[in-house]
Amino acid sequence: MDPIRIAVVGVGKIARDQHLPAIAGNRAFGLAATVSPHDPGVEGVPHFASLDALLAGGPAVDAVALCTPPQVRYDLASSALARGVHVFLEKPPGATLAEVAALHSQADKVGATLFAAWHSRFAAGVAPARAWLAERRIDKVEITWREDVRVWHPGQAWIWEPGGLGVFDPGINALSIATRILPRPIFLQAGTLEIPANRAAPIAADLQFRDTAGAPVHMDLDWRQTGPQSWDIVIETDAGTLKLSSGGAVLTLPSGTSHDEDHEYPGLYARFATLIRTGQSDVDIDPLRLVADAFLRATRVSVEPFED
């Protein structure tokens, strides 16, 4: 079977650190081109300043991976889908729920695959956590996602702009795990967003959710963490405590702790290849919907200005 010819659009840190190695390690794909108006691309691979230039006169591609900021992703995805090209959307899948829904409808109409890729769901502990929780009563959930924005997103102005999500850029990873492993839906009841006086997006958030059976789900997000970083989900159940740490890589159950190597992006590309080969899409918007609800319902509090 011929490899799926894929182009990576947006050659920044996430593309170089994760997408390009995952593509290189998956025989289902062949890197056909890269696209960026700023980055020179990969040696020996055709490079274009825009997706339009690639689609108009470049090598043929079957799929694109969009690694750009979410605010510009809709037009890129729509242009690709209009030509029957399969689309991989880095998280978050878009700047709004409505544009993701429009892309999903367009993909269905043209028969192309659209994949909203939540990489944290492919962390080693997530699938076994989901299986273990399926038969448990959930009593309480505590999500703590604290990191240093200066380490992980230095100088990325877009992330503080409308549609860039602020602290929800990492926080949505936690929500992607929670919506995957918890046996019942959760929804927001109240919350606080701390927004720097010179920014449009929050630097911290404290959110109170509950599931449909009434179990409380508390979420603590902060981008001002220094020293050790915290990416933990602790779930109290009728059978004891489950803890996912290190962003889902480490799973601790009453029976012990398990840890496996990082295979998030290889897992994403394996899933993308399967979707393309079977003519399906995978567009789960639940994590983004919860973020939208936070912006809709939580109280906004102005805090001191933030500078990188």
Results as ranks from 00 to 15, higher is better:
E161W: 03
E307T: 14
Q106R: 15
A56F: 00
V85P: 03
S302F: 03
L244Q: 07
H19K: 04
T212F: 00
F88Q: 00
D222M: 02
V217A: 02
P46E: 12
A60E: 13
V87N: 01
P70E: 15
T113I: 13
V126S: 00
F168Q: 05
A98P: 02
P162T: 10
D282L: 15
R16G: 13
G279D: 14
P254H: 04
P216K: 09
H19Y: 12
I4F: 01
A15K: 12
R130E: 09
G166F: 02
V234Q: 06
A32D: 13
L193R: 01
A190D: 15
E261T: 09
V35A: 03
G227Y: 01
R271I: 07
W118E: 09
F209N: 01
V42H: 00
I143H: 02
F48D: 03
I138Y: 07
L188Y: 00
A292Q: 09
W231T: 07
S50Y: 06
F48I: 03
R5N: 08
A200V: 01
R184M: 00
A65P: 05
L251V: 09
P70L: 13
D232T: 11
A112M: 12
T274F: 11
L193G: 05
D293C: 01
K91D: 07
W145S: 05
Y74L: 13
V85E: 02
E261M: 06
H104Y: 10
A270C: 07
R184T: 02
Q189V: 11
L31C: 10
K91W: 06
P228I: 09
A22F: 04
P69L: 00
V9G: 06
W118I: 03
P254D: 01
T237V: 09
L268P: 01
D220P: 00
A204H: 01
R224W: 04
A131M: 05
F88H: 03
V45A: 09
W132T: 07
A60I: 05
F122S: 05
I233Q: 02
R277C: 12
S246K: 12
G227V: 02
P170W: 10
F306K: 08
L97F: 05
V72Y: 12
T257N: 08
